[in-house]
Amino acid sequence: MRASARRRAALLFLIWGWLLSAPVFAGDYAAIVKDAELALQDEEYVLSAEIQYRLSPKATDALKNGIPLFWAVNIEIKRQRDFWWDQTIAEKHLRFKIQYQALLNVYRVRNEDSGEGGNFSSLGAAMGALSSIRYVPVLGKSALADDQRYAVGVRVVFERELLPLPLRPLAYLNPQWYLSSGWYIWNLKN
């Protein structure tokens, strides 16, 4: 009896772990890649994208209490193959941070890679600045062959791992913290 009880407990534990790790959609609270394109500019492909960020009440409260929120915009270019998995040709990750500074009563948006940023008097203006990505170099034209097919994907990942330690367990269990987008994919014509 003990062995079967242990097996049942182990099975329940595995099912419970799987359910907790399964994707949960936040419904109205998530990032959405509205539009993205890769354009050739001076022998280099550059990305421009429009992203809509929809913060949940929990994320908005945390932000207003001084907790910075981080998102990574992941860009992938893959060579499409018929009989094998697609081959990743290029990957780029852009990390953005938004933080409310109560002393100055401003929202600060910062590109963590380039160090560029700005201060905004309202959350709406800050999110608007965060939403637009313009002319980010991704890949040189010479890296792509003319006779191959390529797909480009862009997604936004909310980085819960960068939340303060006491908040992380709640962020993994509460759907209001599932603020990532799905992949926005299109075929690249070179």
Rank of each mutant, 00 (worst) to 15 (best):
residue 178 Y to A: 15
residue 87 Q to Y: 13
residue 110 R to A: 03
residue 46 V to F: 07
residue 10 A to V: 13
residue 111 N to Y: 05
residue 81 R to Q: 14
residue 136 V to E: 11
residue 98 I to K: 00
residue 16 W to K: 10
residue 141 K to I: 05
residue 181 S to D: 00
residue 74 N to T: 11
residue 8 R to Q: 12
residue 153 G to N: 09
residue 150 Y to H: 09
residue 10 A to I: 02
residue 69 L to M: 09
residue 42 D to F: 00
residue 76 E to H: 15
residue 37 E to R: 11
residue 3 A to K: 14
residue 74 N to V: 15
residue 32 I to W: 06
residue 75 I to G: 01
residue 175 P to A: 03
residue 111 N to T: 01
residue 187 N to T: 12
residue 49 A to Q: 01
residue 142 S to I: 06
residue 175 P to T: 13
residue 170 L to N: 00
residue 80 Q to V: 14
residue 125 A to T: 06
residue 181 S to I: 00
residue 35 D to M: 07
residue 40 L to G: 03
residue 145 A to M: 03
residue 121 S to E: 12
residue 131 S to E: 06
residue 44 E to M: 14
residue 147 D to Q: 02
residue 92 K to C: 04
residue 127 M to Q: 13
residue 54 R to Q: 03
residue 176 Q to A: 12
residue 12 L to N: 09
residue 56 S to M: 06
residue 96 F to G: 03
residue 43 E to Q: 14
residue 183 W to C: 01
residue 134 R to E: 13
residue 121 S to V: 08
residue 55 L to H: 02
residue 22 A to Y: 13
residue 166 P to M: 01
residue 42 D to S: 12
residue 98 I to G: 01
residue 42 D to Q: 13
residue 176 Q to L: 10
residue 154 V to F: 01
residue 6 R to N: 12
residue 91 E to R: 08
residue 112 E to H: 08
residue 60 T to F: 02
residue 32 I to C: 05
residue 31 A to L: 02
residue 137 P to F: 01
residue 145 A to I: 01
residue 62 A to N: 06
residue 170 L to A: 05
residue 82 D to C: 14
residue 54 R to K: 11
residue 132 S to N: 07
residue 158 F to H: 01
residue 109 V to Q: 10
residue 31 A to K: 05
residue 143 A to T: 02
residue 121 S to G: 09
residue 145 A to L: 12
residue 101 Q to W: 04
residue 187 N to M: 10
residue 44 E to N: 09
residue 107 Y to I: 06
residue 127 M to H: 00
residue 9 A to Y: 07
residue 130 L to A: 05
residue 6 R to Q: 15
residue 155 R to M: 15
residue 133 I to W: 05
residue 116 E to H: 13
residue 127 M to V: 07
residue 57 P to Q: 08
residue 31 A to F: 07
residue 147 D to G: 06
residue 181 S to A: 02
residue 151 A to C: 12
residue 167 L to Q: 02
residue 183 W to N: 10
residue 108 R to H: 08
residue 152 V to C: 06
residue 124 G to H: 13
residue 190 N to D: 11
residue 149 R to E: 10
residue 73 V to G: 00
residue 160 R to L: 06
residue 181 S to C: 01
residue 111 N to C: 06
residue 2 R to T: 11
residue 168 R to H: 03
residue 126 A to S: 08
residue 107 Y to T: 11
residue 124 G to Q: 08
residue 68 P to W: 01
residue 25 F to E: 07
residue 135 Y to S: 15
residue 4 S to F: 14
residue 65 N to E: 07
residue 163 L to C: 04
residue 34 K to Y: 09
residue 16 W to Y: 15
residue 134 R to Q: 11
residue 84 W to V: 15
residue 134 R to G: 14
residue 118 G to T: 02
residue 38 L to W: 08
residue 93 H to L: 13
residue 93 H to R: 15
residue 82 D to V: 14
residue 139 L to T: 03
residue 154 V to T: 04
residue 38 L to D: 06
residue 116 E to P: 09
residue 94 L to E: 02
residue 53 Y to R: 06
residue 89 I to M: 04
residue 91 E to C: 01
residue 88 T to S: 09
residue 174 N to E: 06
residue 33 V to P: 05
